[in-house]
Design a protein around this nucleic acid. Structure first.
Lengths: 138, 138
DNA sequence: TTCCATGCAAAGGGTTTGCACTCTC
DNA sequence: GAGAGTGCAAACCCTTTGCATGGAA
């Protein structure tokens, strides 16, 4: 239900300590009410369906803010564009390089074994696993 | 030794079925004589040290060609630029998001367990693992 | 001569920046 | 009224493209 979904989005923003504004709520509604993989331009287009005056800069600013607050995760799978993933739990990805389709792979299903020891001056940020597939060439 | 290194590069090109040209040899010398991680612009700069007339377009064309011939591997770790890796054996990467430093992690050391079954219409291209680290925030 | 490769410059596309305006506390 | 957030447009940067020239088979 739309109202409930919007509520959840607002709650997530508050919980993350993000001051509420109209554009942020609209972006959160698009991005944070269900698990999605969206590029910035797709977010902009979806937000503009309801708030046509929303600016590109605001979307980019907000996406950066959401990332800093760990509300979304950036996926670097394609040099063309960054994809924002609203699932911030540890998980991995299957990426079809032909279609651009991204699919989650749960961390239960797939594990990374034998993590190397890290240099002393750094700490782990995150582990990305991208299983790249393509249409069969037969 | 430079002559030998260049020879190896030329041999790799021949073995891959890539017709030899001066720019290709220069690029191969930079990229294929030892394991490196280089962005296109770095390749261009290094090549121009010896062949200042080399064009950007030729470098990009050649990098694409080398990738198609599996002489190099593209690493998508940073939305800013694509990195070319002259190590085409299966292996993974440690990436310092603060410094941009890339380090190889061998496939002996680290394993990906529990590969999901792929949809019938696709085939595996490659598996990327990027361990993202950052400087410790004391 | 035909085709491929190269160089140069300009275009393209995603992202960021500068700046003025508005709103809020 | 100070600071944050927004919108608009232009700037930016990496990469690709168009096109004319030059060489190799």
């Amino acid at each position: 239900m739309d109202t409930l979904a919007s509520l959840n989005a607002a709650q997530k923003l508050r919980h993350a300590g993000v001051p509420l504004t109209v554009p942020r709520l609209e972006i959160a509604r698009v991005l944070l009410t269900e698990p999605v993989h969206l590029a910035a331009d797709q977010v902009l287009a979806l937000v503009r369906e309801r708030s046509p005056e929303t600016s590109r800069a605001t979307v980019y600013n907000t996406l950066r803010l959401f990332r800093e607050k760990n509300l979304v995760r950036e996926l670097i799978v394609d040099p063309e564009r960054v994809v924002y993933d609203s699932n911030t739990d540890p998980h991995y990805h299957l990426y079809d390089v032909d279609t651009g389709q991204l699919t989650d792979v749960s961390a239960d299903e797939l594990r990374v074994v034998g993590m190397p020891q890290l240099p002393g001056h750094v700490e782990l940020d995150q582990v990305d696993v991208i299983i790249r597939v393509r249409g069969k060439r037969s």
